[in-house]
Design a protein around this nucleic acid. Structure first.
Length: 503
RNA sequence: GGCGCUGUGGCCGAGUGGCUAGGCAGAGGUCUGCAAAACCUUGUACAGCGGUUCGAAUCCGCUCAGCGCCUCCA
């Protein structure tokens, strides 16, 4: 029996607004598409949260035994600039400002994005397609939508005909919008517009003379509209129907709504069965966003060099902080919360570090109740993760196991009564959940020079033991304090033994 | 204005009809030369007002406060 049969996943489907059992189209296989970044500026911590949320979904599906194809795109063209620059592409605008080639901008911020993903131990997707790499497919997609009667050309531009589409398919099913109402509300606004209706959105935009990104098409020189690349690339790599589509909450409308419309307008099918949205990271109750100026880069996070940061925090502290809440809830950033998360993270890692030092389990008379209790904790963690990927709840169970490990270390006789096979099973998955599913890394072990450090610490500890034995407390305390000052905590244990941990 | 969401103990944050969430901080204790860590014990919590129910933080209504989307946004 596979793990995914043992712990069947249920998830909240934003399309149907209810929590349902997850059933992939093809048993044992999952196709997942997540809207990636628009690479025209640095990603901030809020962006990171979304990708981390879906990273855990990806990791969890894989851990349970599903074969997953995870597609996360790079949008390197196509997003229109909102204000006065209607018709101009975000990438192109930035390029002109910085006097760079558009692809130079794309390359720079794509590299930056990848660096950030690595920093937070967010896995690479199976496919990371770019919009510029799929211009041909996008043109074909538009042609099909036009043939189906859901789009029209106007002066070198192609628009999606929302009103026409809405006659055959519900536009607004994902975001719960009343399209009839919206159509009547926007009618007057579109007076001199070449759009038939204010709700219509561009599939293809004509490039004016100064526009830097341009491709030939049946409608003239231009570039694809926003929304389109996701429909095209998800269809290409996952099919007209696939399992999961994810993205940030703020993409729900209009981006995802348009995506569904494009999919149905082209292929008659709406793409994903399950729509999942990650919620926003907030600062003082407000969304972290570029326009708010309340975001910061990973470098600033590590160094603490930002007005919002009292000091720096490690990437794993941040990862743990984010996983302590549910992906669908807003999460408020604060220094206090980060510091609490840091301690919690270290506590978890400290018990991980003790595992190898534990004596053999099950050497005494097995206590069935105690054994079952320990096993229940790991089973609870799995059940929680299968309940809409509730990492916050699962972590609570992990702390139970963490406490057990600490107890076993101090009182080996309590480990002696735990069945060995069960104990090994629990530990295997305890580590599995922490490292493979939650994607945490152990920053508290010695890293590259672990063996060397361990050797040095043996010498230091031996010196302190001798000082203590000679009741030279001045020296033994000095050794402890000096080590503490450079970030190593020496701990006295029962029976005169000592251990250390890295702060 | 339309659509939707949130309000949980000192802080963060799960839960969502009856069963301890958890972390951080605080208090007491065990251990210890002292400390730290660890372990044990401990907290008046569910915005307000009504209603449904044997029973509600959890369902319904109203009020208050705040947020998101509706324009680019993870």
């Amino acid at each position: 029996m596979s793990l995914y049969e043992q712990y069947p996943i249920s998830l909240y489907n934003n399309l149907t607004k209810e929590k349902v059992k997850f059933e992939p189209l093809t048993p044992g296989r999952v196709g997942m598409y997540v809207c990636g970044p628009t690479v025209y500026s640095d990603v901030h911590l809020g962006n990171v949260r979304t990708f981390m949320s879906f990273d855990v979904v990806f990791r969890y599906l894989a851990y349970l035994g599903y074969k997953v194809r995870y597609v996360r795109n790079i949008t390197d063209v196509g997003h229109l600039v909102g204000d006065a620059d209607e018709g101009e592409d975000k990438i192109a605008k930035k390029a002109r400002l910085e006097a760079l080639e558009p692809m130079e901008v794309v390359q720079k911020y794509t590299n930056g994005f990848h660096d950030v993903m690595r920093l937070f131990n967010i896995l690479e997707p199976s496919i990371e397609p770019t919009a510029t790499g799929h211009i041909v497919e996008q043109i074909e997609f538009i042609k099909q939508i036009i043939d189906n009667g859901y789009a029209y050309e106007a002066n070198g531009n192609v628009y999606f005909d929302v009103k026409k589409y809405n006659e055959d398919h519900p536009y607004g099913e994902l975001s719960g919008r009343n399209t009839e109402e919206m159509l009547s509300n926007t009618r007057e606004l579109s007076g001199q517009d070449e759009k038939r209706n204010g709700l219509d959105f561009a599939l293809w935009k004509k490039a004016d003379a100064g526009h830097l990104m341009r491709w030939p098409s049946p409608w003239g020189i231009g570039f694809p509209g926003w929304h389109l690349e996701c429909s095209v690339m998800s269809t290409k790599y996952l099919g007209e129907k696939f399992d999961i589509h994810g993205g940030g909450m703020d993409l729900k409308f209009p981006h995802h709504e348009a995506e569904i419309a494009q999919n149905k307008g082209c292929c008659g099918k709406g793409g994903a069965n399950y729509w999942i949205h990650g919620n926003m990271l907030t600062v003082n109750g407000r969304k972290m966003a570029k326009s708010e100026g309340n975001g910061f880069t990973p470098e600033q996070l590590l160094t603490g060099d930002h007005k919002l940061l009292e000091r720096g925090y490690s990437s794993m502290t941040v990862r743990f902080f984010m996983l302590m809440s549910h992906y669908a809830s807003t999460l408020d950033f604060s220094n206090e919360a980060l510091q609490a998360a840091e301690k919690g993270y270290k506590r978890l890692m400290a018990s991980i570090n003790l595992i190898d030092k534990l004596p053999e389990a099950g050497t005494g008379k097995i206590d069935e109740a105690k054994t079952a209790e320990l096993k229940a904790s790991i089973e609870k963690a799995f059940a929680d993760l299968s309940d809409d990927f509730n990492t916050a709840k699962a972590i609570a169970s992990l702390f139970e196991i963490s406490t057990s490990i600490n107890t076993f270390y101090q009182n080996p006789n309590q480990l002696a009564v735990i069945d060995k096979a069960t104990f090994d099973y629990v530990i295997q998955h305890f580590k599995g959940i922490i490292f493979d599913i939650l994607g945490l890394q152990n920053e508290t072990s010695g890293g590259q020079n672990a063996e060397l450090l361990d050797g040095v610490m043996k010498v230091v500890i031996e010196m302190r033991k001798q000082a203590k034995f000679a009741k030279n407390y001045g020296l033994s305390d000095q050794i402890r304090d000096d080590m503490k000052a450079i970030g190593i905590q020496i701990k006295d244990e029962k029976g005169g033994e000592m251990s250390y941990s890295i702060d």
